[in-house]
Simulated scan of single mutants.
Amino acid sequence: MQWSPVLLFGLSIFGLVLSYPSDITFFTGKEILEGDAAMKNALIEQQLKGLLEEFRETMLTGSSTLPVLDPLYIHHVEVDETIISVPDLRVVIGDAKLHKLSTFVVEELTVRRPILSLNYRVQLDVHIPVLHLDAGYYDLAASMDGINIFGAGDARIFLFEPRISGHVLARPVLGLGTLHVRLQECEIKLGLRGFESHINGLLGGDATLDAFVNTFLGFFVPDLVKMYEVEISEMISALVLQYGNEILADLNLIDIIG
C-alpha cells in the first residue's frame, strides 16, 4: 500500500514518536503511574513534546528504522471519487518529493484522562508554514461545480499553512510485562489557508491557459477543502485509526518508559 503524505505525517506525530529511541531524560513508568491525574497528564505531554523535537531532526536524516521523511519521496499515489466524493475525480501523482514536513509547528498537544475512564484523550493542533510538492508527473480529471478540469504533465504546488487538528482517544492495555496502547476513537480535521500551483498541461492548453487555470485553482482549492471537510476528515480519521492501531500493536511501551 502507498500511504498518503497526510497519513504518514499524522501517524508520525502520534504513533511513531511513541516508539522512537531517545537520549532525553525519561520519567519512569512508576513516576507516571503513581502521580495524581494532573501530574500524569503533564508528564505524558512533556514526553511527547520532547520526542517530537527529536523526531523532527530524524525526519531530515533518517535512522536505522526510519527513512528520510523530509523530503518525503512519493513513488505513486492515487485518489478517486471513492475516497473524496467529487464527481469523476481521478488524481494520480508520481515521482514526487514533498518538502518541509519537518517544519511543523505544534500549536496544541494536551493529554487528559476523563474521570472514571481508562481512556486518555490526546488533543492535537499542528500546522506547517509552507508545504512544497514537486511532482515529476500527474494525471488529473475532475468535475467541479460543472467545470471539467483535466490535464497531465509535471507540477510544483505550494500549500500554505496546511493544518491537522483533532483528537484521539487512546487506552493503555496492561499485560504480563507489557504495556500497549489501543486507539479507541479518532477525529482528525484538515485545514488549508492558501494554495499556489505551477501545473503544466492543464486542459491540454498552452502556457497562457495553464497560467489562467493555476490562478483559478489558487482561489478554488482552499474553498474545496472546506466544502469537502467532512469527507476528508472521515477518510483521514479512518486511516489513522486503522493503521495507527497496527503500528501500536507491535510496540511494548514498557521497553520505552521502563
Results as ranks from 00 to 15, higher is better:
A152P: 09
L133W: 00
A135E: 00
P172G: 09
L133A: 02
V130S: 14
I164N: 05
D125V: 04
G153Y: 06
H132F: 11
I157G: 07
D145G: 09
Y120Q: 03
L176R: 14
V130K: 15
R171F: 07
G146T: 08
Y138E: 00
R193K: 15
F158E: 15
D145N: 13
P172S: 10
I188A: 09
F150W: 14
L169M: 11
Q184S: 05
V181P: 04
A142S: 06
A135V: 04
L192Y: 00
R182G: 01
R121E: 15
Q123G: 14
A135Q: 06
I157Q: 02
I188Y: 07
L133V: 04
M144S: 09
E185P: 05
L174E: 13
R121M: 12
L176Q: 09
P129Y: 03
K189G: 06
G177R: 02
F158N: 15
V130D: 11
I149W: 04
V122E: 08
G166Y: 04
I147A: 05
R171D: 04
C186R: 01
G153V: 12
G175F: 08
L176N: 09
H167A: 10
D125M: 03
I157K: 03
L192W: 05
G166S: 08
V130C: 08
T178M: 06
G146N: 10
S143M: 14
N119T: 15
N119G: 13
S165N: 13
G175L: 07
F195S: 10
L183C: 01
L192P: 00
Y138D: 02
A155E: 01
Y137Q: 03
P129F: 04
N119L: 11
G175E: 12
G136I: 03
C186W: 10
E161W: 05
L131R: 05
V126P: 04
F150Q: 14
G194L: 00
A170F: 12
N119E: 14
L183K: 02
G151N: 05
P162T: 14
P129M: 05
E187D: 15
R163N: 11
